[in-house]
């Protein structure tokens, strides 16, 4: 009897203990999980800080030697003795201009394709066309480089560029932009065109995604009062999705600024600033990829400084994108 009583009393006690143990275990699990995610997040920050730090350490000799002059010097002469003359203006120019031209081509094309796919394309074609465009994003950049080098470059130089040069020959300003003095298979324009093709799928994919978030009722209402497709796109779809579209465009710009392999193949790697887009040029990443392996001393340090500049440039682009998105959101909310 007495033992049975004890058991009766003991059961809730044991259950409580078990309960507490299980709860403790759960809390511990939660804590460990939280800690693990926290560590992962901080680890990434630590790696980022480490990269910036090592870039600054590596670039320090060049910063000390060239100072602010580095940003405005057009020459890149690593062979000079005793001290090389190195300046970042030519690669910065090439990076910005090639990305700008690429955006000029890719943004209208990319958005146009997205509008076609969401508004105009017959349903059974939507999936295959979209898949094909997304496959473009999956092609490794070296393939683009090879294709640009062996196919696109010679094609442009032999068939397209001469007629462009001739067409603008008598128009001031444009005749220097489209100057035919140095037409070859490798040029700033070719690199820009390859970049445009490379970033097109990013813009299209994101635009298609955000365009399909537009509530059908809005579009139907607009169509209902007699809007044309263009009016629906311009007055309903784009205003509703501009935040996402700008985000996609900025993502593409970030990719264009940093693209290395394809550009190195076809830009011509010339540290010259030329008014003509058919002249060879170079970008920051192409310069680093070409020269880093065989560089030493101040030359190498200057290349690391170029890397740091690209880092800062990309950071500013992304920061600007964030800032713009924030303002757009605010305006849209008001």
């Amino acid at each position: 009897m007495s033992t049975a009583d004890e058991t009766m009393q003991a059961i809730p006690h044991v259950a409580k203990q078990q309960r507490a143990r299980v709860l403790l275990g759960m809390a511990l699990g939660d804590k460990v999980f939280a800690l693990a995610t926290q560590v992962a997040a901080y680890l990434v920050l630590l790696v980022l800080a480490g990269i910036i730090l090592s870039l600054i350490v590596g670039a320090w000799p060049a910063m000390k030697a060239f100072g602010f002059e580095f940003l405005i010097t057009r020459r890149w002469a690593p062979q000079l003795e005793p001290e090389p003359v190195l300046g970042a203006l030519a690669p910065i120019y090439g990076t910005l201009v090639s990305s700008f031209i690429a955006m000029l081509i890719a943004v209208p094309f990319g958005l146009g394709i997205a509008i076609f796919l969401t508004e105009l394309c017959p349903h059974r074609l939507r999936k295959p066309v979209r898949l094909a465009i997304e496959l473009l994003a999956g092609i490794p950049s070296i393939i683009y480089g090879m294709w640009g080098f062996f196919v696109l470059g010679p094609f442009l130089a032999n068939y397209i560029e001469p007629s462009l040069v001739a067409a603008f020959a008598n128009i001031p300003v444009l005749n220097s932009i489209f100057s035919g003095e140095m037409v070859s298979n490798l040029s700033l324009f070719n690199a820009s065109l390859i970049l445009a093709i490379m970033i097109l799928p990013f813009i299209t994919a994101i635009a298609v995604d955000v365009f399909s978030t537009v509530p059908p009722v809005l579009k139907e209402a607009a169509y209902g009062i007699g809007c044309t497709t263009w009016e629906v796109v311009n007055n309903v779809v784009l205003p509703f999705t501009r935040v996402g579209v700008v985000g996609g465009v900025m993502l593409a710009l970030g990719r264009a600024l940093g693209e290395t392999m394809a550009v190195t193949f076809i830009i011509g790697n010339s540290f010259k600033i030329s008014g003509s887009i058919f002249a060879p040029s170079t970008t920051i990443s192409a310069a680093i990829a070409s020269e880093f392996a065989e560089s030493s001393g101040l030359h190498q340090s200057a290349l690391i400084l170029l890397g740091l500049l690209l880092f800062v440039l990309t950071f500013f682009v992304l920061a600007t994108a964030r800032f713009m998105l924030m303002r757009l959101e605010k305006r849209a909310g008001a």
């Binding site: 690593p78 062979q79 010339s270 020269e291």
Partner: peptide, 17 residues
Amino acid sequence: AVGAGQAVEWPVGVGAK
């Protein structure tokens, strides 16, 4: 104008790897 080196400041031309 140019001098000798592994990588030099070329006045003209396109660079290939």
